[in-house]
Design a protein around this nucleic acid. Structure first.
Length: 441
RNA sequence: GGUGAGGUGCCCGAGCGGCCUAAGGGAACGGUCUUGAAAACCGUCGAGGUUCAUAGCCUCCGUGGGUUCAAAUCCCACCCUCACCGCCA
C-alpha cells in the first residue's frame, strides 16, 4: 500500500508509476473517485453518529434523574424520556444506513488499493523484462572448447555424483520435485552453513521461520495480487505455503511499533519455499532450475525509509560477497520496471553463468519495498519527532539452493566428471576438494 | 481431540448496559527539589481515521456477527493463550 496522501495530492505520480510497470492507469482514476466518495460518506456517518451519541448520553442522564426523582416530578421526566427515545430510534436507523454505506465504500477503496503496485523508483530502468540494465559482470565464464571437452549439464553431473534424483521425486511427488541425496544433501547443508556464518558475521539475526502462514501475512507482503496463482493455498485450513521466507520474516513484526534505536533490524531466515509455477509449463523442465519446493536463505531488513536505498546496496553487497566465495561468474542487473514484483520499488538480480545454457540465469534477487509492505502489515517506528511512521522493508536472497547447486556443478566441473568444491565450502564438506562420480569412488 | 481458566491501552489490572466510552498502579518522558543521583511531588503519557490543524469529531477493550435509543459490559460463532488428560513428530 502506498501513502494515501499521494493519491489526493499527486495522483499523477501513481498513474505514472503504473504506466512504467506496464499496468493500466485506469485503476488509479477509479480509486480517486472511490476515495472521494468514501470520505464524503464517512463524514456523513460521523456527523450522524456524533448526534446519536449525544442523544444517548442525555437519555442516560435522564434515566439517572428519574431514579432519584420524587413522585411529583417523575411523570414529567418520564414523558421527556419517551420523546427522546422516539427521536433516538429514528436516528439509530439513519446511523445504521450511513454506516453501512461508509463501510461498503471503505471496503471498495481497500480492494482498489490492492490493485495498485508500489511506486517504482525513478532510477529503475523503464520497460519490460528485457529492458534491464547490466550493472557489472564479475568473473569470466570458462571456455570449455579451449579446455577440450563439452560440459555436462547439472542433472547429468548430479546424477553421476549421486547428488540429485528427479526420477524418484517424480514418482513420489510429480514433476518439478527433486531429492538431494548423499553429497547433494551435504552440499546444501554446506551452503547453508556458509551463508549463515557470513550473515551472522555481518550482524544479521538468524531465524528459522514458519513456512505455513495465515492470509494476512500473504496479503501483507503483496503475494495475493498477480502473484496469487503461484501460491499454494490449503483450503481446508485457509493457510498458505510461503514462496519465500520474506513472508514470515516481514510479518514477524506486524502490528508493532519498533523502537527507532533498534533500527535497522536485520534478519536472515532459512525456510522451504513452495511455488506452483503456474504459467511456466514447458519452461526449464529439465533438472532443478524451476521446482515446486526448495530451500532458501533470505535476508530481511526493517529500516528508516531514508536509509532504504543505502540498505539496498548493503544487501546486494552481501549477496555478491557470497557469490564471490563460491567462485562463480555472474552479473548484476538493475531489473526493469515491468519485471518488478508488486511490492518492489527497485530490484537487483544476480545472475550466474550457466555453461550448458550459454547464458546468465537468476540466482538471487534483492528488493527495496520502501514502505509498501509495512503499511499493509502495520509495521511502524517512532521517528525523531516521536511520530509514528511506517518503516521501510527490504529483502535479499543469500542462497536459493537448487539454482546455486546448478551453477556450482556446471561451472566447477572437470573433464573427468568431477566437481571442484570452492575453498570456502570445503570446511563444511570434510575438507574435500572435489565431489566425485559414484563410479570413480 | 477432551476438560477447565482466560484474552482490556507499553506492562499489570479494575470495569451493576447508560449518569467521566476505560479507574488505579507500574514503566517511560518532561519539570520541581538536589552538588549529582535516588526518593518525594507536579505534569505528560495508546493507535487508526477525518481535518489546514499535534482544534474538534469518529473508530478500536482477541476476531466476526447480533440484540438495544445506548455495549468492554448481554447473545451467537470463531481464533488464540495457559493448565491438565489423551494421541503423536
Amino acid at each position: 500500500m502506498i501513502d494515501p496522501r499521494i493519491l489526493r495530492t499527486a495522483p499523477e505520480r501513481l498513474r505514472e508509476s503504473q504506466l512504467r510497470r506496464g499496468l493500466p492507469e485506469g485503476t488509479v482514476i477509479e480509486l480517486e473517485k472511490l476515495d472521494a466518495e468514501h470520505r464524503e460518506a464517512l463524514h456523513k456517518y460521523e456527523e450522524l453518529r456524533s448526534q446519536q451519541k449525544r442523544l444517548s448520553k442525555d437519555i442516560g442522564k435522564l434515566k439517572g434523574r428519574i431514579k432519584k426523582s420524587g413522585s411529583k416530578e417523575r411523570p414529567v421526566l418520564e414523558q421527556e424520556s419517551e420523546s427522546l427515545l422516539a427521536s433516538a430510534g429514528e436516528l439509530a436507523e439513519a446511523v445504521k444506513v450511513a454506516e453501512q454505506r461508509a463501510d461498503r465504500l471503505g471496503a471498495e477503496v481497500e480492494d482498489a488499493w490492492l490493485t495498485i503496485d508500489n511506486l517504482v523508483d525513478p532510477q529503475a530502468p523503464v520497460g519490460d523484462e528485457d529492458a534491464f540494465r547490466v550493472i557489472t559482470e564479475v568473473g569470466t565464464p570458462r571456455d570449455f572448447g579451449a579446455e577440450g571437452f563439452t560440459p555436462l549439464d547439472h542433472l547429468q553431473l548430479g546424477e553421476a555424483i549421486g547428488a540429485i534424483d528427479v526420477e524418484r521425486a517424480a514418482k513420489v511427488s510429480g514433476s518439478r520435485f527433486y531429492y538431494l541425496v548423499g553429497d547433494g544433501a551435504l552440499l546444501e547443508l554446506a551452503l547453508l552453513n556458509l551463508a549463515m556464518n557470513l550473515a551472522h558475521k555481518n550482524g544479521l539475526r538468524p531465524v528459522l521461520p514458519p513456512a505455513l502462514v495465515k492470509p494476512a501475512a500473504m496479503a501483507g507482503t503483496g503475494f495475493l495480487g498477480q502473484a496469487a496463482e503461484n501460491v499454494y493455498h490449503l483450503a481446508d485450513d485457509d493457510m498458505y505455503l510461503v514462496g519465500t521466507a520474506e513472508v514470515p520474516l516481514a510479518s514477524m513484526h506486524a502490528d508493532e511499533i519498533l523502537d527507532r534505536s533498534a533500527l535497522p533490524l536485520r534478519y536472515v531466515g532459512y525456510s522451504p519455499c513452495f511455488r506452483r509455477e503456474a504459467g511456466s509449463h514447458g519452461k526449464d523442465t529439465r533438472g532443478i532450475i524451476r521446482v515446486h519446493q526448495f530451500d532458501k536463505v533470505e535476508m530481511f531488513t526493517f529500516c528508516e525509509p531514508e536509509e532504504a536505498e543505502r540498505e539496498h546496496s548493503k544487501l546486494l553487497g552481501w549477496e555478491r560477497e557470497f557469490m564471490d566465495r563460491l567462485e562463480l561468474p555472474y552479473r548484476v542487473i538493475d531489473v526493469a520496471t515491468g519485471d518488478l514484483g508488486a511490492s518492489a520499488a527497485r530490484k537487483f538480480d544476480i545472475e550466474a553463468w550457466i555453461p550448458t545454457q550459454g547464458r546468465y540465469r537468476e540466482v538471487t534477487s534483492t528488493s527495496n519495498c520502501t514502505t509498501f509492505q509495512s503499511r499493509r502489515l502495520a509495521i511502524r517506528y517512532r521517528d525523531e519527532e516521536g511520530r509514528v511512521a511506517p518503516v521501510a522493508t527490504l529483502n535479499g536472497t543469500l542462497v536459493a539452493m537448487p539454482r546455486v547447486i546448478v551453477a556450482l556443478l556446471e561451472n566447477h566441473q572437470t573433464a573427468d566428471g568431477r566437481v571442484a568444491i570452492p575453498k570456502a565450502l570445503r570446511p563444511f564438506l570434510s575438507d574435500r576438494a572435489y565431489l566425485t562420480p559414484l563410479q570413480q569412488q
